[in-house]
Design a protein around this nucleic acid. Structure first.
Lengths: 205, 205, 205, 205
DNA sequence: CATGAATGAGGTTTCATTCAT
DNA sequence: AATGAATGAAACCTCATTCAT
């Protein structure tokens, strides 16, 4: 019996299989949501993409909504460290803003469908849930922004609206960035940073 | 009662009935979508809210998606004249931006339905379709912005990103505005305008 | 337009079809319950015996239990007039008792499975629900018995126990009668009447 | 105790554990059947009430039906010695009848489980299986009754019907006894004995 | 022997849509 | 044009049972 098996007695085959299955379901769900859209996707569609049996789905998730949330929250949990790193690496406001936007656009470009979009003619469907994770991300960003603002004597700016404005810019630019071929995360981050720092004056400079 | 109704009473009644039925379905759909969310709502849920029979639905719409689009596009069609009016009444860029934001926030405040949102604990679901109408609105806004920008010698600004940024700001601020009690369309329009014109410098001025 | 259509405008094809379908489901259910037993039977088993589609079942009944009740209550409703007739035709207690037992045993012998019994090796299952109809039958019988008892100055007999005893005799004898080949409703009614009137003394007389 | 239990102390423990597990399952089943009714209960419901794993169930029973039978037959096996005792303690027919009824009503009052009844509003469901045990009980009772009858020169009484009548009276009175608050096993036994010995004449005496 | 996750058949139920009235 | 019952595909989900650990 190895030391390993003492320190991690729970990591037997069964546990590994469980984690693998859960991940297999999440992966399949990510794909199917991206292809069919959230609404059109059924639980069957998801499990058909795995080599698991239908009943197995219900050992891991209660419903399609629950997988969606898990996926969504996973996404946010992967992004939050990036945001935190942007915060920690940045020593002035503009550097933070740029790093945060860049992190987000890169994340969107590389990470599987951050928003599950059915990109088929004639319509795509986008579903957004407001979960605790979503709100926590919003709040984390707000905190960072407020810190910088108050350190610069800009306490008068409405922090809620400012945070919302930044997120709106990020979301919509990400959407355009991914629809276009002539531009990537760096361009988008440059634009978004200029817009956020100086508005029209910033972007036209 | 008009002459028409005497000579051909059936026709007038019928036509009125037809329009009434269509409207009844749309009204019911608006309510139900708002209550249950788009996904959860079924055609049955919609017709149950009217005093029509299930089959009658199909005399007016082919599917739930079609009603949704009709509702959505109706919303956009109600908004576009407002945007055009903002354009026509404005003689400089900032005046246009302000008027456009104000029109949008007022529209959201009074006609909350276009973004069928289920605001139930603990999550809301927002579904957005990308329809020709949606794209036409985006393009109309882009045209207006480009006109102003080029008239000011700012042709170097990426019009697609700029439009996207403005719409992102509008959408997210609208969301916050409706969630908060301490602020309304005017405040939101002031903030959005300042953000769009001058970014952080604008909003902190 | 005939007089008929005025007096019975509701009796169109549709109404007739509805009644037929309901009956078809009940008939199928009666058969299947008798063959498979209540527990083993599924809603699918029932509709498979009809030429209706699966969904149609749910236009008529909410569940297997509901069909069962309908069937059960139907049975009781068919029996109650027989009991009432026994009461009305009888001028003394013993005549009533005999007529009632005979009606019951005949009813059991002819009417489709009054109790749904799976008579297969190695076990049968008998399910009994206690519904308002069941209780109403018990109460009706009790009323008749009490009337006769009090008219004979036998008010001291516990009417609840007496009624229960008679029903117990009826049920168990019916069961035996149907399991045996050497005896029929008349014999069973004779025996039950003798038992009820005079107990051991009665039956051995 | 054998040498075995010294050299292999595990065996004793294991055997005890085995018996305990079996009993745990039976106890859980008794509860769940009583609460949910036979049909509604699933094997999962039963094992969830124990601290055993689902697979363990199948080391002891093949199916829900088998547990049910075990429980049912257990009940009958607990009752049969009481019936035999009634027989052995009684020196005339009436004494036997009274002792048997009393034993049954007491048994029902204390050991309600044998007739797994779900007494929920508005209906209860009673399931009865006809097993070899059930038939053996019927036959044992019939034997005793026949013995007494023939010893009294009453061979002409139909023993099958007579036994059935007695059992019907017992079952139905037990049901009423348990539903009522004003009466107990002794009253019920008195009534049943009077009914069985003298019918209406008996109970009104 | 106990465990408990995986299995997948099959049950329940909903629902968009059709079509006879 | 309105009705609303019938349809049956297909969704959801449960469950008894197996079997690797």
């Amino acid at each position: 019996m190895s030391v390993e098996s003492i320190t991690a007695p729970e990591t037997g085959k069964r546990e590994r299989a469980k984690a693998q299955n859960r991940d297999a379901i999440l992966d399949a769900a990510r794909q199917v949501f991206a292809e069919l859209g959230y609404e059109t996707t059924s639980v069957r569609d998801i499990i058909r993409r795995t080599d698991l049996a239908s009943g197995t789905f219900y050992n891991y998730f209660k419903s399609k909504e629950e997988v969606y949330h898990a996926l969504h929250d996973d996404g946010i949990q992967r992004f939050r460290p990036l945001l935190r790193a942007a915060r920690e690496g940045a020593h002035d406001f503009e550097a933070f803003v740029r790093a945060a936007y860049l992190a987000y656009f890169r994340y969107c470009a590389t990470d599987g469908a951050p928003r599950f979009v059915r990109m088929q003619d004639p319509a795509w469907t986008q579903v957004r849930f407001d979960t605790p994770e979503t709100r926590a991300l919003f709040d984390e960003l707000k905190t960072y922004l407020v810190d910088f603002l108050s350190s610069q004597g800009l306490g008068g700016v409405d922090p809620d609206y400012f945070t919302a404005g930044c997120m709106g810019v990020a979301e919509r630019l990400a959407e355009r960035m991914m629809a276009r071929n002539d531009t990537g995360p760096e361009d988008a981050a440059d634009f978004a940073t200029a817009y956020t720092m100086g508005g029209l004056k910033g972007v036209s400079a």
